[in-house]
Simulated scan of single mutants.
Amino acid sequence: MSSSKEMFDLNDPIIESDEQKSFSDEVCESHDNKKPFLDEVWGSLFPQENDLKQSTRTNNRRKIVFCDVCEQSFANNSNLKQHMLTHTGEKPYSCEICHTSFSKKSNLEQHIRTHTGEKPYKCDDCGNTFAIRSTLLRHMNVHRGEKPYSCTICNKSFSYKIHLNRHIRTHTGEKPYSCEICDQCFSDENNLKQHVRTHTGEKPYCCGVCGASFARNFVLTRHMKIHSGEKPYSCDLCSKSFSNKSHLKRHIQMHTGAKPYSCLICNQCFADDNTLKLHVRKHTGERPFCCEICKNSFARKSHLQSHMKISHADGTPNSCAICNKSFSSKSNLAQHIKAHTG
């Protein structure tokens, strides 16, 4: 009757019904308590088959009530009453922080964790914690090696449905997520979020050691290896080690002499794509790194950094007091002033 959002972020809250919560709790317990017998009607788990049979006989005597709107069944009137709120649209539970409203108190409690950062559900295998029980259950598929979601096109399997949905778009070419600023489209919502940060300058991932901030979490993870000294990627040819895989790949090309990246303008070839990008700016004249003090721009970030150290070490612009023209260095400014003073 109501549509559900097909895609979701792994960190987004996934709201569970009362029945799903009960089932999820018992599934979690089953990992420790060995409860392999499932009551497919009520979702309960039992350690012995006789326990399941006894429960089935008891449940057959339980009263089942039905929703008059959608005919969904419930174990009692209390659950039915809670369910009816989804039809009436009533949301009596409101968040005191952002005032978002919910039809269930349990949904509100899960939502509040997005503000507090609380993650009460812990994986016993790896120690990862989660805000939502269902996210933990999906995560357990990774440890069990289960991949229940299969692509009908190429039969590749995935532990998470979100990964399957993302994969299917590699077949269809669908890019449903569009940037409101530049209209660039993306196949994945997370890629769109990361792209938008290139416009806003937002860098939410901060290093606790040196304070450096980053737009992407994986860049922070890679950066942390600088502090830890960890270099897990080793060259098989010379045993030199690197903190990230891309640096290893670039290094190996020094041994092989491979230059797979070619300039479409002059056909010059390069060992890595970053060097190619820098080269292309010579053709296009692009200077994306701009000095906020004197507004001079540079093709390379390292050139901007050098400029800041040489020209603005004291934080002041090299601008002419007579005509307000700015210069990249103090020596150029001094030469310019002579034009005024003679």
Rank of each mutant, 00 (worst) to 15 (best):
Y121E: 05
H227S: 03
H83C: 00
R133H: 01
L85Y: 07
Q48V: 12
S157D: 02
F289N: 01
S30L: 03
L108Y: 06
K122W: 08
Y177S: 06
K325I: 07
R216I: 15
F289E: 03
D9A: 04
R300E: 12
N190R: 13
L52E: 02
M254P: 02
P148D: 08
S326P: 03
C154G: 03
N11P: 03
C28G: 06
P317Q: 09
K282H: 05
T200W: 14
T86L: 14
S22Q: 06
F37E: 08
H255A: 07
A321M: 03
T114M: 00
M254Q: 03
V196A: 13
R281K: 06
K203T: 15
P47Q: 03
C206M: 13
S234F: 05
S44V: 04
E90V: 12
T341H: 08
P288L: 02
I97E: 15
S73K: 09
Q335F: 07
K259L: 01
V280F: 01
R250A: 11
K203F: 14
N191W: 12
K203M: 15
S2V: 03
Q335C: 11
G127F: 00
S311P: 01
G117S: 06
M254K: 08
L333Q: 13
D39A: 05
K53N: 12
K193R: 15
Q305W: 06
F130C: 00
E26Q: 12
I14H: 08
T86E: 15
K21C: 04
I265T: 10
S326D: 01
D18I: 13
S228N: 11
K295I: 04
D188N: 13
Y149C: 10
G229N: 00
F186V: 00
Y121S: 04
Y177P: 06
N318R: 03
K5Q: 05
E109Y: 12
G211M: 02
N59Q: 05
G208K: 07
I265K: 01
G342Q: 09
A321I: 05
H171S: 13
Y93W: 14
S17G: 09
A75F: 15
P120G: 02
S331Y: 11
I97T: 15
I97L: 15
F270Y: 07
D18G: 05
L248F: 10
D51R: 01
I265W: 10
K330Q: 09
N165M: 13
V219F: 09
Y149T: 11
Q110I: 15
L304W: 04
P92F: 00
R281T: 00
R169G: 11
N267R: 05
H31Y: 11
